[in-house]
Design a protein around this nucleic acid. Structure first.
Length: 193
DNA sequence: GTCATGATTCAA
DNA sequence: TGAATCATGACA
């Protein structure tokens, strides 16, 4: 079964959204990819989330609806792409960490010259560059567009582990991914990380 | 494996 | 003013 994902999908707890997004197809203008790695962040009680120490992030959660793009510049170098999750008791974000190119590969190659196909989107900063994303889409609800969005696709094996690149709240196993994909940003361990 | 890169946010 | 930051590519 395959159907377009709407705001309702992102109206559940972030870890549920992040897990179910693995294996789904991601349409972004002329490019089509498969989601192979995500991470969940909670707007409350999660030290690793921007909302923990960023007033602007908390205001963003309040001001926008489920499915809105939350894009920010990391280390002053890389754009990172998140989807806003809204739930009465568990709002937060899903970070896209890695994608597998399916079609529109020529466009991705042109934005990342000299990179092997499977590595084009094998990291949170890599995928935004390959797809031509930037801060311009911050705050946009792309689910309502015709050229951008997710298509549900079940049946993918999902592994879980500790989130990457953070020093706080590493006990939460909120990184999800397809362990068999060749386009992960980092491999998954046997059980936990 | 180490290391330079370098924008934005927020608190002081 | 400065410290911290959800990473990457180049190089040894």
């Amino acid at each position: 079964m395959m159907d377009e994902i709407g705001p309702n999908f992102f109206s559940r707890p972030p870890e549920v959204c992040a897990r179910e997004l693995v294996g789904c197809l991601f349409r972004w203008d002329g490019c089509l990819t498969r989601v192979v790695e995500t991470e969940a962040y909670a707007s409350v009680d999660d030290e690793a989330c921007h909302t923990w120490n960023r007033k602007g992030a908390r205001e963003f959660v309040e001001a926008h609806s489920a499915g809105t793009a939350y894009v920010y510049l990391n280390y002053g170098v890389h754009w990172l792409f998140n989807v806003l999750v809204k739930h009465p008791n568990a709002s937060g974000f899903v970070l896209l960490r890695a994608l597998e190119p399916v079609s529109g590969i020529e466009q991705m190659r042109s934005r990342r010259p000299g990179i092997a196909d499977r590595q084009l989107c094998a990291g949170p900063g890599k995928l935004t560059k390959a797809l031509g994303m930037s801060g311009k889409i911050h705050g946009q609800n792309f689910l309502q567009t015709t050229t951008r969005g997710f298509v549900r696709k079940s049946g993918t094996e999902v592994a879980m582990g500790s989130r990457i690149g953070i020093s706080k709240a590493i006990d939460r196993l909120w990184r999800f991914g397809d362990p068999n994909s060749a386009s992960l940003s980092k491999k998954f361990g046997s059980v936990t990380d």
